[in-house]
Design a protein around this nucleic acid. Structure first.
Length: 351
DNA sequence: TCCATTTGACCGCA
DNA sequence: TGCGGTCAAATGGA
């Protein structure tokens, strides 16, 4: 199956840019680890890194790359992989989400991409609702949802009218755990009002809420589940659990033989040639890091640059309890694995 | 007075 | 016809 050529190309370029930016930021962070930097500086770096990967995933999602991936991957290969198509945390609502996505896409400017995340709040914040994500939201509705213990709240960007920003989100408190909020974002912020920096706006003590799960959804019923910023589940509309055979390492990218994901995907910018040896090596005793030191990409164009990341709002600190086997990137210190068994080929990315 | 929230009504879809 | 999503009038707070 062929993707739309232009969107594929644009998405690929933007994806490369975001991944490269993430690499560079990770490298900066590594360099700073030995220094006595202010906590805020480190947090800022972390936020930027995670933001880059957020964007990358959104690009994957919105450009149709995910859909393409799922279409080119034989179903027989979709098992036994660390990357699983797990069910949504509120899997019983999964079809609802999809329906709402379709509905939304018709009613609200055909926004195709959406994503959801779970946010766990600490008990003292529990009654306050989900944590501030940095954007300015205006509540426009609340509905009791069939089978849900708590009503669903609907928010849209405060600047919808003045800046034509059509970002919306839905907040649903989890039935099972009242301290968990399922937040579904629809559409991207096009307003110029950058999200407030969490690190700047809140004391470390107040940054308790932990990000548990972020999922990227596509109208085509595909989801990328992004755990802890860098663990990715790809989720199918099908409620049956599936697995996705990509656990990609940089080394695998270089040595995938017939599996030509990286060469075909990134040759546009000599992407994989830009990794430094420590990143490329699969056997290094040290964590593998992305390095953009020699990367030829010197700008982050190709993706609409906004004053701030649209996704900086979802940068949360906790990485505990989520050592997902999905993508073994205990970011930023663990390597990012690419599975050589992933049956990529070139045609989907070709022009 | 302005702005955000609340809430019942309305609409579209399956 | 029921449900989820949105609208818009009513309400309240600063």
């Amino acid at each position: 199956m062929e993707m739309n050529c232009s969107s594929s190309s644009d998405g690929r370029t933007a994806l490369i840019n975001e991944l490269t930016r993430g690499m560079e930021l990770a490298k900066q962070l590594r360099a700073h680890l030995g220094l006595e930097l202010p906590t805020e500086t480190r947090e800022m770096l972390l936020e930027q890194i995670l933001s880059s990967y957020d964007k990358a995933l959104l690009i994957l999602n919105s450009s149709g790359l995910v859909e393409w991936l799922q279409n080119v991957v034989p179903s027989s290969a979709m098992s036994g992989s660390p990357m699983s198509f797990t069910k949504s945390p509120r899997s019983e609502d999964f079809n609802d989400h999809l329906e709402s996505s379709r509905d939304f896409s018709k009613k609200s400017r055909k926004v195709k991409a959406w994503r959801s995340e779970q946010v766990k709040v600490n008990l003292e914040n529990e009654l306050e609702g989900p944590p501030d994500d940095g954007y300015s939201w205006r509540k426009y509705g609340q509905k009791d949802i069939l089978g849900a213990k708590y009503p669903r709240s609907y928010y849209r960007c405060t600047y919808r009218s003045v800046q034509d920003c059509w970002a919306t989100k839905q907040v649903q408190r989890s039935d099972e755990d009242a301290s968990i909020f399922d937040i579904t974002y629809k559409g991207m912020h096009t307003c110029r009002n950058a999200p407030r920096s969490k690190s700047a706006s809140a004391s470390p003590e107040k940054q308790e809420p932990k990000l548990q799960t972020i999922e990227y959804h596509q109208e085509s019923n595909k989801i990328l589940n992004f755990r802890n910023g860098l663990s990715v589940d790809v989720q199918n509309l099908d409620t049956t659990e599936m697995t996705f055979p990509i656990t990609l390492t940089a080394f695998d990218c270089m040595n995938s033989g017939n599996n030509t994901l990286m060469p075909s995907t990134f040759n546009n910018n000599d992407f994989y040639h830009s990794f430094d040896p420590s990143f490329i090596s699969p056997v290094t005793s040290e964590p593998n890091y992305f390095s953009a030191s020699s990367c030829k990409i010197d700008n982050f164009g190709g993706f609409p640059q906004q004053p701030e990341s649209d996704f900086a709002d979802i940068i949360l600190a906790n990485t505990s309890g989520t050592n997902s086997p999905i993508v073994e990137l205990d970011f930023p210190l663990d390597p990012f694995h690419f599975n050589p068994d992933f049956p990529f080929d070139n045609h989907g990315f070709s022009r």
